[in-house]
Computed example of a mutant assay.
Amino acid sequence: MSSLTKSTPLVAPGHTRPVTHLSFSSLQDDGTYLLISSCKDGNPMLREWTGDWVGTFLGHKGAVWSTKLSLDSSRAASASADFTAKIWDTYSGHPLQSFPHNHIVRSVALSPSAFHLLTGGQEKKVRIFDLNRPDADPDFLSETGGLSHEATVKSVVWVGEHIGVSAGEDGWWDLRTRALATSITFPNPITSMELSRQTGRLVVTSGKTVAFIHASPSNNAAPSHTLTLPYSPSSASIHPILQDRFVTGNSGDEWVRVHAMDGEEREVLKGHHGPVHCVEFSPDGEMYASGSEDGTIRLWQTTPGKSYGLWQGQNGG
């Protein structure tokens, strides 16, 4: 089912190399939010909910693979190919802390209180840093000195103050109270995992599969809903309010797709000029963002033609 009104994206330029990861902030008290982007140019960018540029975080010496914002948006965390993870002040853009690793860092996550940082990457280990004790050695979330995946850790998220989840090319790990609680093995390497905070679900892509997993600590971590698509999605994001659709990117072509929760393809959106590496719904569900090999971010309306943000006055609404 296609929308009667054509979806015309807003283009957010600024990066000079492929965009690797996108992450929206939580919805703020005034109804606005922020968008932070990662790029192989090594310079994460912060944008307003309209897509307008706020600032660039300068300091990494390699590609940035992941950036996340704290719940109050006052802090940002970044993961880089320069073997470091960094914490930033989003108001000033200044780096506050830098944590060295022994290999490329692929993913970061700030705990709900922003007191702890979770990291993972090509070191194949999951680390936790106490931001109030930056000089202390990190914990490795296991009794044996390091929770080790057998392959690169693609994503880490916090689902509670003391509960983390990591996804590697070899499977999905549920880390509770700094010890391994549950693991799930997928038939193909995991390519992405994001937490949909409003729906309480983790969205995981692996091969041609999209899995929706309840993130509740009381849940047994079994996928609540799994779909097989005719292509291999690079990333997926569920509508945070309606929960009736999800959007995907695909490293095999230049299109963004919208699917119903039964897998039916609703829309194919064309605009990028390179593979789409990452997608993410805004916290109010009014739009979603996509990042591409072409170095651009595109913002798409969930309801094309609606008067919203920078689309006001452009759609006749």
Rank of each mutant, 00 (worst) to 15 (best):
42 G>L: 06
42 G>T: 00
43 N>Q: 13
48 E>Q: 13
50 T>K: 10
54 V>Q: 14
56 T>F: 05
57 F>G: 03
57 F>L: 13
58 L>E: 12
62 G>N: 08
63 A>P: 03
64 V>L: 00
66 S>V: 04
66 S>Y: 02
67 T>L: 06
68 K>M: 04
73 S>H: 03
75 R>K: 15
80 S>F: 06
80 S>L: 00
81 A>R: 09
81 A>Y: 11
82 D>I: 01
83 F>K: 13
84 T>H: 06
86 K>G: 00
87 I>T: 02
89 D>N: 15
92 S>P: 03
93 G>P: 04
97 Q>Y: 12
97 Q>C: 00
98 S>L: 06
99 F>Q: 06
101 H>L: 03
103 H>V: 00
105 V>K: 05
119 T>K: 04
119 T>Y: 04
120 G>Y: 04
121 G>C: 03
121 G>Q: 06
126 V>G: 05
127 R>C: 07
128 I>C: 14
131 L>A: 13
131 L>Y: 08
136 A>Q: 14
136 A>K: 13
137 D>G: 03
141 L>Q: 10
143 E>V: 05
143 E>A: 15
143 E>T: 09
144 T>P: 02
147 L>Q: 11
152 T>G: 03
153 V>A: 04
153 V>C: 03
156 V>W: 09
157 V>L: 00
157 V>N: 12
158 W>L: 02
158 W>I: 04
159 V>N: 08
163 I>V: 14
165 V>E: 14
166 S>A: 15
167 A>C: 12
170 D>V: 09
170 D>E: 10
172 W>M: 07
173 W>Y: 14
177 T>C: 12
178 R>Y: 11
179 A>N: 14
180 L>W: 11
181 A>P: 03
187 P>W: 12
188 N>P: 02
